[in-house]
Design a protein around this nucleic acid. Sequence first.
DNA 1: ATACGATTTTGACTTTTGTCAAAAGATTAT
DNA 2: ATAATCTTTTGACAAAAGTCAAAATCGTAT
Lengths: 187, 187
Amino acid sequence: MNIGKWTIEKYNFSEEEIKLTLSHFVPKMVKENEFFLKAGEVSNYIGYVTKGLLRSYFYDDQANEITTNFFPEGSLIIVADSFNNRLPSKEYIKAIEDSELSIISYQEQMDLYKLLPAWYQICKDFGDIKISEILNRAESFQTLSASERYQKFCSEFPQLLQRVNLGYIASYIGVDNATLSRIRKKK
Amino acid sequence: MNIGKWTIEKYNFSEEEIKLTLSHFVPKMVKENEFFLKAGEVSNYIGYVTKGLLRSYFYDDQANEITTNFFPEGSLIIVADSFNNRLPSKEYIKAIEDSELSIISYQEQMDLYKLLPAWYQICKDFGDIKISEILNRAESFQTLSASERYQKFCSEFPQLLQRVNLGYIASYIGVDNATLSRIRKKK
DNA sequence: ATACGATTTTGACTTTTGTCAAAAGATTAT
DNA sequence: ATAATCTTTTGACAAAAGTCAAAATCGTAT
């Protein structure tokens, strides 16, 4: 089971353990424009995207839709605050394309902690990767101009450029729609 | 041992286990303007701040000093990328005031994993708190204006206002020095 | 192909933020 | 107390980004 960054190879699991882990996951389809999670619900699943593309977003005070993340194949979807602390989510997660996920429920995941002590380690490592990703994102906002953030987005996620609305990208990099259009125009 | 958000109370440790945990920590003083970590070094300690105030910063491409965090009493200092992946740090961590920390080395911490399986859980939970903090920070950049970010900083960290240079705050909220001065002027 | 809706671009204008350099104010060392 | 240094404020200006509304473009369903 090699799932990109989210690999469990390095934990030297036995066949047994791998089977045990995988047996706790179930497949799930999410059709284009359907929700994997709605704001107000408590996130009850971690999802690994095997196919397709989803995005997360929420509404700010002025009811603007703010895109916070894209989840193409190979992504792990965890709505950290909601899933970990059993709180209602602020975010929606919606499929941009027909998508296939492999999901594990909160409860199943708790069971795994008991059956497989390494599961804590795995989850901690996954968390560490998330931390690096978000730090990187915060740093971009802190130090880069709108146009530099767009450049960076393009080089980090070239595959997404063809697959998502520019409006989503604009909001993801924290820029007005019209401004992104102008940024793209000049070179 | 109640250390604010970073509490180990909820893990229902025995006296033994608490002693075991604490025995792995050692005290460390960092005088004003001294470094807890320098860029280029591999971060070898997690530090819990019991007294004083430190900050983390790095230099961007144009050699601007960018403040990324403040660590007053009650903070947990982990330079995630460097500590977890044993990579040289981009960041400096320097004391703004004479500070006292309680630190645990990478190795000691690894030993704790073996002696105390719950240590993984604790570290995962600490990571989850960090994730929420950084997400909150990224969201501020994504959705708030410079002056709103300053307001938010003031209400989130009122104690820091009196204790750190405005220049550090400006950089932390991603705003030019002169701009922050003007923001503060008008009301 | 046509028409509808959604997305993207454009124009004219405003507001926000940055830049640079100088002045004012604080702080520290001698 | 004074000089030297660091921090903060200010002014004049420039650049970046936002706003609003209309036009152009694209995609899809009929």
